[in-house]
Simulated scan of single mutants.
Amino acid sequence: MNEERVVELLLYLLPAIVTGLIALYFFRGHTKNEEGRRRFLIHKEAQKNALPLRLQAYERMALFLERIAPAKLLLRVSPPNSDKEEYEQLLVRHIENEFDHNLAQQIYISDECWNIINAAKNATIQLIRKSNRNEEVDSADKLRETILSDLLERPAPSSAALSYIKQEVGELW
């Protein structure tokens, strides 16, 4: 008779245990879902606050690329005298100062975009230095002419980086 009572007790407890396990399973699923929802809402709010900062960073880097485009740089920075070496250093210094002024923007843009911008800056400096090493260049004005004629043959390094920025900003929408 004792065995019968134990079996009877187990038969009564079995549905309660199964119901408790099912309730525990659904409660854990619900808790996990709520936690995910909360994380999503926090992330969404952070994105909403960060988007203006990111757009501003892309704007500043686009302005940087426009300012270091050789054609615009040569119009803005005129040679102080006819010394080509001094003019080369002046142009490079302007590019480096512009870049240093915008260094903090890298935290708001992707690493790939930052690397492309950095490569465009370095390629522009190399273009200036390569033009200065040309044997036909004997003055600052001749250096300007040589740089501009090089740009007629190929696009400025900053134009490719600017296109990449536009593409990346387009993906934000």
Rank of each mutant, 00 (worst) to 15 (best):
E98L: 10
R67E: 04
A160M: 06
K48F: 08
G29Y: 05
E135Q: 08
E153D: 04
P52G: 00
D141C: 02
S131P: 02
R54L: 01
D100N: 15
A161H: 05
L103E: 11
L63F: 06
N118W: 02
L162S: 15
L55S: 10
L172M: 15
P157A: 06
E112G: 06
L148H: 04
E59A: 05
R60A: 05
A161C: 11
E96M: 06
F40S: 05
E136I: 04
R144S: 09
N134F: 00
N97T: 13
S78R: 14
D100C: 11
E171W: 15
N122R: 11
M61G: 05
K166A: 15
P155S: 14
K32R: 10
E136V: 12
K142R: 08
N122H: 07
A160G: 07
E145P: 00
V92K: 08
E59M: 13
A62R: 01
I42T: 03
E59R: 08
R154E: 01
L74P: 04
N102M: 01
I128P: 04
G170P: 10
L127M: 08
R37P: 02
Y58T: 00
E86S: 12
V169S: 06
E45W: 04
E88L: 08
L162Q: 13
P155V: 03
I42G: 01
A71D: 12
L41N: 09
R28E: 09
R28M: 05
H94V: 11
A104K: 11
S159T: 15
E98D: 12
N118S: 13
S82K: 14
L162C: 10
S159M: 01
